[in-house]
Design a protein around this nucleic acid. Structure first.
Lengths: 219, 219
DNA sequence: CGGGTAATTGAACTTTTTCAACGCGCGTGG
DNA sequence: CCACGCGCGTTGAAAAAGTTCAATTACCCG
């Protein structure tokens, strides 16, 4: 099932979010058929039972938590090929939603093959690795550095092209980077004014001066 | 080996950091004798080979990363009973140092028993859970909320006493919370002025109004 | 082409940082 | 025993960064 096969669904972005950096969990043929989720629809919610894992076939997923007063922190965006849904404990503390129209393969872990259980730890560690990069960014980088890191991260997830598509809104980006939408928007504008990036529509970004970005991200 | 057996070493804090919330990896008798680390000394560094895990017998450990310009983000403090040192990849990207004089048990994982391999995934997930709490804090909470969360976290790690000992300096706390030492200090002063906490020396904190703290932490 | 959502921009304001000065506690050496 | 220095912590004032609120513009989709 592809986005392009679903009537009435825009495929302008759907098929572009390939992620060449993530090995398949197991051969594609062993994976269940993807379930389709409309943009914005819920994949799981806080309070749901843990136990299932999910794999993005196409589209994009945001995983987030909410504070009681509604402040949101997005902990990760997942692009095609990535597995998400790890959580310690019995009940989920996170929400997962489709950022754009997406196809999701549902993997049941407990009953899975032993072969799969062996891959769980590396995947969890990969998750941890990303969380720890994210931590550094939120704790110690300023707005411009976070935006630069974010663009490079997206470029890497999409195979190091100089053109990237951002499936998420400024609001999503803000909640991922711990900023406001206005600050995100201003940082984009500044990068554009300096000729570091070009904005093509609301979603597209051309990276004109990659090394300027890496210098800003200052790892 | 206990801190109190080491001549010339202050034991004023060493024995106080018990953590009743963490189950031992395996029965205490199977654990190797702890290695002693002086306050400030390095346990491992960025670039070291991964593969060993560590368990805090007594004392406290900080795990952190550095940006190229020296900015530091502490990703966790580990108190007695906790296991640390998980990292994906071959080489470490983190540093670990003793915050105060500490005893560390070194567990070699690869060659470990199968029984231990089975505990790796839960431990990694536990790690992930903490990282994600931390992420929320850094991304979406203000200075006072972070300090309140931090104090409650320390209280929980030390068994929900109303008196807690902070083995780390203000600078460590600042680098854990993504703030400056001045901001940390001002938040402590404000809490003191409001009668929420009492400061007993540089390291001790009495929690006078616990529910005021939980209200501030606003989970 | 027109409507509505999302994004951008400006200006005032708030929070946090930065820079600088000062104080406290403690150990050392005169 | 006391003076001194040193590390750590606190406090104040000014500056910077980011947020908030409000108004405007751009883009996508029918």
């Amino acid at each position: 099932m592809l986005a392009s096969e679903i009537p009435g669904v825009s495929t302008a972005h759907g098929h572009k979010f390939r992620n060449p950096n993530v090995a398949a969990v197991r051969p594609e043929r062993d994976l269940p058929a993807p379930v389709f989720f409309r943009a914005g629809s819920e994949i799981y919610a806080e309070g749901d039972a843990c136990g299932k894992l999910y794999r993005v076939a196409f589209g994009c997923v945001r995983v987030y938590r909410l504070l009681s007063d509604g402040r949101r922190q997005i902990s990760a965006f997942h692009l095609p090929g990535e597995v998400f849904g790890f959580e310690a404990g019995k009940e989920r503390r996170f929400f997962a939603e489709a950022v754009c129209d997406s196809g999701i393969q549902i993997l049941s872990t407990g009953s899975g093959s032993e072969e799969m259980a062996n891959e769980l730890l590396p995947m969890a560690l990969q998750c941890l690795l990303r969380a720890e990069d994210h931590l550094m960014m939120l704790g110690r980088q300023n707005a411009m550095e976070r935006i630069a890191s974010f663009l490079l991260e997206m470029a890497e997830q999409q195979g190091e092209q100089s053109h990237i598509e951002l499936p998420m809104t400024r609001s999503d980006i803000a909640d991922y980077l711990g900023l406001t939408i206005e600050t995100v928007s201003r940082a984009f504008s500044t990068l554009k004014r300096r000729g570091v990036i070009r904005l093509t529509g609301l979603r597209g970004v051309d990276i004109v001066q990659r090394q300027a970005l890496t210098a800003m991200a200052c790892h």
